[in-house]
Design a protein around this nucleic acid. Sequence first.
DNA 1: CACAAAGTTAAACAAATGTTTGATTTAAAC
DNA 2: GTTTAAATCAAACATTTGTTTAACTTTGTG
Lengths: 211, 211
Amino acid sequence: MTTTYNDKQIQIIESAETLFAEKGFNGTSVRDIAEKANVNLAMISYYFGSKDKLLEALFSYRGEYLKITLENMMGDGTMSSMDKMNTVIDHYIDKVMKQQCFSRIMMREQVLNHTGFTAKLIFEMKKRNQELISRLIHDGQRKGEFRKNIDIPLMMATLIGTANTIVATQHYYREINNLQTLSDEDFQKHMKKKLSQHLKKLFKAILTHEE
Amino acid sequence: MTTTYNDKQIQIIESAETLFAEKGFNGTSVRDIAEKANVNLAMISYYFGSKDKLLEALFSYRGEYLKITLENMMGDGTMSSMDKMNTVIDHYIDKVMKQQCFSRIMMREQVLNHTGFTAKLIFEMKKRNQELISRLIHDGQRKGEFRKNIDIPLMMATLIGTANTIVATQHYYREINNLQTLSDEDFQKHMKKKLSQHLKKLFKAILTHEE
DNA sequence: CACAAAGTTAAACAAATGTTTGATTTAAAC
DNA sequence: GTTTAAATCAAACATTTGTTTAACTTTGTG
């Protein structure tokens, strides 16, 4: 299933990613992409077939990245369920922060298109991630660490929604907190740390506090 | 500042709203809008000048709606700060749920365009809402109801991000919770209630729980 | 070298796009 | 009823769009 792409294809995909994140899929022309990638216009059709297929290629290229890949941690008997959950949170934040362009595209795509290839991919990714978290939570409940009656989809929405909203509106966050003096790198670090603290606190409240 | 629109203009604006929410701004042609609104193509330029200006008109038309308009509640001495905060939460959820199309458009627009008319409007709206909530929180802190060191922008991101993510992916939420049998109306009610409980719980945790 | 496949190109293509035109109809005011 | 402005319309406009063509260069292989 995993397709491999050559250098030129990756150049095109990553140029497209930047532009899609910046101006949206429909707001970006294949000529824009060709120019940014320094390739001839026809190369995009030649390699990917169409603009739509290029988006699909981008999702295949990045898709693996946004999956929570912590299966090996799951069985670890030495970690508490809460520690595991905190690891999942940091893992997710890490991915969103490292792939901000793709996160924006995903955020936009999932609001649109409930059919089609990308919707299907997003849906499966969501489902997969949710199953992992469900297992984690049920383990925690069995051990008495977590309380009962946890609405997992809502919890996921808070994780995904908060992280993506912050990433999407970080210029605003930066201004409101007077962090313009920070270097880009330092600001990213700051934001990541704050986001991590915030979400862990929220999750602790959902998972352990009684009414 | 507040422009009034005649029936035909509103017809166009609301048709555009539906289509923009469904297919995005760039994914919608003015011909699509004209057809949906049952008006001649040229009427859109005639009334609004351009497609971009039509989007601006939509924001002017709906913009007022998404502002949190609870200034009169603020001074109410009989309500606790937590009660006020819960009212703000329900107020926001109510607006997002009632204006799902516009919420989707805003969500998409704020990821894109950090310049331009709509970005400016969103920015001002954000700032205004944040000031209101800041006041509320500082009142609560002064009264000893809320703890210190609350990251308000992060809190706002959780409110906005969670609510909008749920609205944007409600088909998924519905499927995952086996709520397909519910009527649309009942499902909206269900989702609203759950969302309200969830966010109130989160906010209570952020605002009152000590480390 | 010869040959075939893959890569690359400028040009052309048809369709769709946002916008404008100019003629015609409707409505209101005098 | 005449005049004037607003509203409506089909058609045309110039760009931009995604995609294809057909000629070419490059690359690798026997």
